[in-house]
Design a protein around this nucleic acid. Structure first.
Lengths: 147, 147
DNA sequence: CTTGACTCTGTATGCCGGTACAGGGTCTAT
DNA sequence: ATAGACCCTGTACCGGCATACAGAGTCAAG
């Protein structure tokens, strides 16, 4: 497959493919004599995976870890294991947050037309408490540590 | 409370508060005669909520919707309802994806040291299929529509 | 062998979410 | 009344994630 086809099937821009390649997310495909990239069909799945993972809140750096982890080097089983476990814990936290939001949202909808107004917002109450320490630190700079 | 205190308790930079204020995420607090902002304690919860929501994959634009929705204007109950439902569906999709990832990751770990190598990656297989249409369209430009 | 669609590389640009800095007031303790 | 910590506004800058454009080569159909 050529670039345009992969891009179309994966639902992304051609430039995006090249960008992922530069970032090391997408392995460099072999080239024809012309210099054209020649992708295997798996590439589409990989790109879609990247998009899904992103849509769910992972950064490209994290996606990269997931991918490398998925492609699992031969000997680094231990490392893969640890990383995977860490990611699973991360996922659990994310899922938990999403659940909490979901519950709050539904409660919000429920109480919405009952006491007309003046009900306090369950969303923020449910999720605004406690110090913020989300996932694995992306975007975080909690303690004001100099970056 | 003054800016610095809110920032410290919420675990963000002062500038971030002002940024959120500019974006309309954080309501403009009253000012002292000196011009200093004077926040109520709820602000901390709001900021924390923003951070959580972000950490879980919402953009600030989405967070803004959630917040406005949470603060629920008086009459827009219908609209609030719809929006909330939509967000809940969005959350469900996210949760589903995370679950799938979770399962795949664990399968990956399991099969990791069993057949030494050559097992195919369940992560990408599980999540690389089908067209990408995550959540509510953030980051998406699926059909190659000219923007 | 020309035309139009496609691809290549490289560089520039744009949006999002902050973060930093300059230049200046305010507050509090001594 | 002055030092030091804090806050104000405004503007500039940064990293992440793309996306666009320029200038040139490739390919398939007529």
């Amino acid at each position: 497959m050529r670039t345009g086809q992969v891009a179309a099937e994966a639902g992304v821009n051609i430039q995006t493919l090249r960008y992922y390649e530069r970032r090391g997310l997408l392995p460099e495909p072999p080239r024809r004599d012309s210099g054209y990239r020649s992708y295997g069909t798996k590439s589409v799945a990989v790109v879609r995976f990247i998009k899904r993972a992103q849509g769910v809140g992972f950064t490209l750096a994290e996606v990269e870890m997931l991918l490398h982890l998925a492609q699992g080097g031969p000997t680094d089983c231990e490392a893969v294991r640890d990383l995977a476990h860490e990611k699973v814990r991360d996922l659990d936290r994310r899922i938990e947050s999403l659940h909490a939001m979901r519950v709050s949202l539904e409660r919000l909808v429920e109480t919405c037309d009952r006491p007309k107004r003046s009900r306090e917002c369950p969303l923020i109450e449910a999720l605004g408490g406690g110090p913020v320490a989300v996932g694995d630190g992306r975007l975080m700079n909690v303690a004001g540590e100099r970056s």
